[in-house]
Computed example of a mutant assay.
Amino acid sequence: MSDVSPHLESYTPQAERAALEDLRTRLRATRWPDAPEDAGWALGTDITYLRELVAYWADGFDWAAQEAALARLPRFRTRLGGLGVHFVHARAVAPTGSVLPLVLSHGWPDSFWRYSKVVPLLTDPGAHGVDPADAFDVVVPDMPGYGYSDRPAGPPLDSIAVAGLWAELMSALGYDRFGAAGGDIGSHVSRYLALDHPDRVVAVHRMDGGLPVRTVDPAELAPEEREWFDEVADWGGSEGAYGAIHRTKPQTAAVGLTDSPAGLAAWIVEKLRAWSDCNGHVERSFTKDEILTNITLYWLTGTIGSSMRMYHANAAIPPGQLSRRVEVPSGFSLFRGDIVRPPRAWLERTANVVYLNEPARGGHFAPFEEPELYAEELRAFFRPYRAPAMD
């Protein structure tokens, strides 16, 4: 068991002036690469757009205002597994007997930022025209190596280990039974919470079903599953270079991304555009301030390298773990603009599916892109599991 401290410290970080001045100096001194004419986003990040973003980051972006906005969320730190873990813990504004504790797990390239818009919608539904009985107590931790949580000095933690830490965190907060939800890597963390703690997780909601696990005999696959396997392989060939680097040589990329804020922005904004439901125009899903808040969190905490190393850890998870079936009631919201969406046949092969919906808007970062839609998905899925959670 990890050492859980019962002491929860209120936490409101504030960037030092020197760190912000250093950031602006580096941005203004960016050494720009050449690019073919009219390359746009075809070869990676559009340099013309990146120049615009970097200029605004250096001389227009108000980090203090964004930091103050994030500080309105109730944030804490505690120790789990010998690491300092930062988390949001927002209680239901008008608690009733049906309040359900819910732990939300983020992915890459983000942090607790992914859920910053949706927290008030979940904790105070009455203020947003929704039945107050649908309120949640919400817990949003930064995974170790992300955001304001500590970076592991030793081997990176995989999704199984992080799920174990979240179970301990929920115990430390006094929640015996709770719901779990997540997307991207957070989907895997939520899955292992349900697999390893089925007596505590009343239901689990995910935005994806994970990538195909090739431990299944291809002859057993339905046609739509085989088609999906091929789609994922094609996507990996054209879009998966970042993942191959993260899994195999994360430290090589980390040198440049930790040293150059423009390089860091290029690495992250390309994914925000490619994975969101923006029709190729990233600012249809995120404002410049929202993009730069996410990137600045990575910059100030120095966590791009440690976040990438989690891919290396997850790549070493044994196939037997990947092929386990989730028996806890499972819900899936497959947003229209997300990547490589699995067919129902695969979801039912790997989980006890009791809810499946395909919202018409939103992508990989749906809690941030479409917070109202995402909140409604969680309310609809978890509604039947509220009373049992409080027994």
Rank of each mutant, 00 (worst) to 15 (best):
T12P: 00
A15M: 02
L23G: 01
L23M: 04
T30H: 02
P33H: 09
D34K: 07
P36T: 06
E37G: 15
D38A: 14
A39K: 01
A42W: 07
D46Q: 01
V54I: 14
Y56E: 07
W57T: 00
D62K: 03
W63C: 03
E67L: 01
L73E: 01
R77Q: 08
G81R: 00
S105K: 07
H106D: 05
G107M: 09
W113Q: 02
K117F: 13
L122C: 05
P125Q: 00
A127S: 12
A133R: 14
A133Q: 13
D134N: 13
V138A: 09
V140I: 07
G145Y: 04
D150A: 04
P156W: 01
D158Q: 07
E168N: 06
L169I: 08
M170R: 07
M170E: 07
H188A: 15
H188C: 12
S190T: 01
D196W: 08
R200H: 11
E220Y: 03
E224A: 13
E225N: 02
G236N: 13
E239I: 08
A241K: 12
G243P: 01
A253P: 05
A253V: 00
A254F: 10
D259P: 11
D259L: 03
P261Q: 01
L264S: 00
A265E: 01
I268Q: 05
K271T: 09
A274I: 07
D277Y: 03
Y298R: 00
G302R: 04
T303C: 10
G305E: 11
R309K: 13
Y311M: 06
A315W: 11
Q321V: 13
S323D: 14
V326D: 04
E327Y: 05
P329R: 10
G331K: 01
G331R: 03
G337W: 06
W346I: 05
A351Q: 02
N352W: 07
N357S: 14
A360E: 14
G363V: 06
Y374D: 10
A375F: 06
A380F: 01
